[in-house]
Design a protein around this nucleic acid. Structure first.
Lengths: 344, 344
DNA sequence: CTGTTAGCGCCTTCAG
DNA sequence: CTGAAGGCGCTAACAG
């Protein structure tokens, strides 16, 4: 049904080859011919068929972004950076929500491979089990053999031999910084509401927490370490459980700002004032961190920059076999939700 | 570079057609042959070329989503609904951020047309000027002539003759409801921080505000109507300006929850307590509405449902010339940020 | 049940 | 500078 190049050629009274040359502009065409063709294009409202073109070039101009959930501000921030950078190379970004389900993730990877994506950027923490790792490596190899570049974003490489560049976040460093901040304020009993178990991000942030406490000569009370996912609700429920169990703590460190926001509601509902009774700290410095009252102390993660970096790696010069690993730094942001513990 | 169907055929010792039949499964093939083919596919790690396929079918299995900014929770919510519904019809969603720039929006529309998208869903308020309208209608016709379905989401149809189904939000109704709520609480001097000027959503919500006040026999003080965009910062700045100008008001109605969150910070910074000194109400019932303290009274907009509806319309039976318009209802959600004005 | 043939829409030689 | 021809990878007839 759509207009084809042949029809344009007929209308302009030239051969299809000439139309193609005008369209691509990379070949000499007489000015008068060009004008006639351009007019025909306009009159017929012709748009080239991207598939026919992709079939010839074995490339598609699309960048696949596979992430858990684009409505989560963490992923949204990275996706935003990717889109911006991809658009600058005039490529279309395709965002795919895997809902954190490895099966869906792999399905999207195959789909994207079928579409001959120029690059696929896989965003977010990875499951840490062996089976997943093996499958991920296989997928990575498959993508490369199809000529699709792969960049991992916010997760470590699945293995040394796996192809694909990597943009990781200094999660452990940020976690150390914010834990130190609490310790320096005088907190000794700090609750930690982590992300989902067995995910690389969770592990790294938790490791930072433990490292900072160890450094200060403080023991970790395992009763105060609660698992959840990266949602408000998880934060709320975790703190409710902690409170119900009668555990004693003067600060809550959360896996991210959403969790922290949930923690804040739970504490407030229990009549604890923040930061006077309990300090709360988040992670990621999501936009909502300043909606929460008091504004959250958190760790800034340069989300958009991470996305841009990923695109840079995908299409940068290091187009070869080597895999580049970039680690973006994080930075402590002190706001109003943390203070010294109540004396006594 | 990628493996082709012909190579698979050679490996399995059959003809390309047979491989195709195995792959598509819609044609009888001997069990033994099928197994040999499947093995070859596995060994070679073959994935069909989606472009070659699309070239035959004149369809691509992709749904284009064009919106201002996927990291904005309003758009993220709708996009989420679209993705879910599109996935159920095993179609890939392509999200494109236009940054609210009509030119980019049109560029994406053309791009998507070139990719022979099965449908394009255009999300968000539209500029209200004539020039844009004309261009939008032209694009809509172009898409239809290429066999791409168009659905408008959160905006009215550009014209009676423009093709494309529409999912609109009852913005005016929601605005009336929340304004009435404030009036019933006893507020008489209500500030309104609107969205960007000349956008359909802004106009509808403002109209609702005016209608509800008129209904109550109240005059609108134009000094209290301030324009901004749909951001926290706009909310903060608008309220700062209102305060600086010494205007007197007992409630702030915001264009959306982000703006309301900004308004809350500005008020708090000025030492006003909410809702005791000033009531604040938002719109959209974004996730962050419950991060703000006090939790925001707002108007619920069923974002995901809107997205799902849009996909339904795109691929539903009403596949014909007619354009369907669906208006989704909104609902008042009363939380803690609104109360009666301080007496005196 | 399986192979052969033609062609989707475009671009890229190769001639003219 | 322009046209004709072949083929990218796949599938839908048409034979067998």
């Amino acid at each position: 049904m759509p207009v084809t190049l042949v029809e344009v050629a007929a209308r302009a009274g030239v051969s299809p080859a000439t139309v193609s040359r005008v369209l691509n502009g990379n070949y000499p065409v007489a000015e008068s011919t060009r004008q006639r063709v351009e007019e025909a294009v306009r009159e017929l409202d012709y748009v080239v068929n991207a598939h026919a073109r992709a079939l010839l070039h074995a490339t598609s101009g699309i960048v696949g972004v596979v992430l858990n959930d684009a409505s989560d501000p963490f992923f949204a921030g990275i996706a935003r950076g990717i889109q911006g950078a991809a658009a600058e190379t005039s490529r279309l970004s395709v965002i795919c929500n895997s809902e954190g389900d490895p099966e869906q993730e792999f399905a999207f990877l195959d789909l994207l491979r079928g579409h001959r994506a120029d690059a696929v950027i896989l965003v977010g923490a990875a499951p840490e089990d062996e089976e997943y790792r093996a499958a991920a490596i296989a997928r990575a190899k498959g993508l490369r053999s199809s000529g699709t570049r792969l960049v991992l974003c916010g997760r470590p490489a699945p293995g040394d031999d796996a192809p694909g560049d990597v943009v990781t976040i200094d999660n452990e460093g940020g976690s150390i910084a914010i834990t130190r901040h609490l310790v320096e304020l005088g907190h000794r009993r700090i609750a930690y509401v982590t992300g989902p178990d067995g995910r690389s991000t969770t592990t790294a942030r938790l490791a930072g927490f433990r490292a900072a406490l160890a450094e200060a000569g403080l023991a970790v009370d395992e009763n105060l370490v609660v698992h959840g996912d990266f949602s408000r609700q998880a934060g709320r429920e975790a703190v409710e459980r902690l409170l119900a169990a009668g555990h004693d703590f003067t600060a809550v460190l959360a896996a991210n700002d959403l969790v922290a926001a949930g923690a804040v509601s739970a504490l407030r509902a229990a009549g604890r004032s923040i930061p006077d009774d309990v300090s709360v700290a988040g992670y990621d410095n999501l936009p909502t961190a300043v909606d929460v009252w008091p504004n959250l102390t958190t760790v800034h993660v340069p989300l958009e920059e991470i996305g841009r970096k990923a695109v840079e790696l995908a299409f940068g010069p290091g187009n070869a076999q080597e895999t580049t690993v970039v680690t973006v730094p994080t930075e402590l942001v002190v706001r109003d939700s943390t203070a010294g513990p109540a004396t006594g």
